[in-house]
């Protein structure tokens, strides 16, 4: 059993992952990962390179098929279901490395985020909401997405994921390769997005930032969860400080 720090506020469950294992050929990347995200939660997954953070996220979003274990979304079993079917069930994934469509315009990228929706008025409303979060996207809406800066591309990737009106947003390393100031902006918006009712499962190498935002966090080490707790409690823990905060 992983060590638990602090007490968790009980919320109705949204995502339940239990005993998930993932293999890449002979290599076992995940050795029975269990975690949960409650409605309205921000949950962070921290750990070193190769600990299995991205694999966990990909197993949740259906991009990887787990060899064992189950994934449940809002009480429904979604284990091993293809990724594209989960978008309609309320899950949006902003993949690692941003994955924007470089030769399409910013607006086209955002419209593709709402690919499964047909309510035009709602889409237009959400588009305004995204431009409200990141005004720079409005200025650049007719520009090819590949010409945006790294930070702007990350803003676009997050906005695009939000355009499907998800209940749960999966984010893979939103701070990767960005200037600290840009990262600050993005995390401020994430807090706002969460306040509007979207639950977030966040994978992040920048443990300091992630723990500052998260209600609850898990520490992954070589494919298994070794510690969990409230963001604040983990920030205060000596083990975490030594291993992940460089102190």
């Amino acid at each position: 059993m992983p060590e638990t720090l602090g007490t968790r506020e009980v919320k109705p469950p949204l995502l339940g992952v239990s005993g998930v294992e993932v293999r890449y050929g002979a290599i076992q990347a995940l050795r029975g990962v269990s975690l949960s995200v409650g409605q309205g939660d921000v949950v962070a997954l921290i750990g070193a390179n190769g600990a299995g953070k991205t694999s966990t996220l990909r197993a949740v979003s259906g991009m990887l098929k787990p060899t064992a274990g189950t994934v449940q979304l809002a009480g429904q079993d979604i284990t091993g279901q293809p990724a594209h079917t989960l978008v309609g069930k309320g899950m949006a994934h902003a993949p690692e490395g941003r994955g924007i469509f470089p030769n399409l315009t910013v607006l086209e990228n955002l419209e593709l985020g709402a690919y499964l929706r047909s309510d035009k008025a709602g889409i237009a409303q959400d588009l305004e909401r995204m431009y409200g979060f990141f005004p720079v996207l409005r200025e650049r809406q007719a520009q090819l997405a590949g010409t945006l800066s790294g930070g702007e591309q990350q803003m676009l990737a997050i906005s695009r994921a939000l355009m499907s009106r998800p209940k749960l947003l999966l984010l893979d390393e939103p701070s990767l390769g960005l200037a600290p100031q840009v990262t600050q902006t993005i995390f401020r918006i994430l807090r706002e997005v969460n306040a509007q009712g979207v639950s977030i499962l966040l994978v992040e190498q920048n443990a300091h930032l992630a723990l500052g935002l998260a209600h609850w966090a898990y520490v992954l080490e070589t494919g298994a969860i070794v510690m969990e707790g409230t963001g604040q409690a983990l920030l205060a823990s000596d083990d975490v400080r030594k291993a992940y905060l460089g102190e």
Partner: peptide, 24 residues
């Protein structure tokens, strides 16, 4: 049509297209 958008999305980034709900 929206189908065309889906095809372009696949060309641009298959993983991201999948994540948008496109049956690639």
């Amino acid at each position: 049509s929206p189908h065309g958008r889906a095809l372009l999305a696949i060309r641009e980034d298959e993983v991201a297209a999948e994540a948008m709900g496109v049956d690639t």
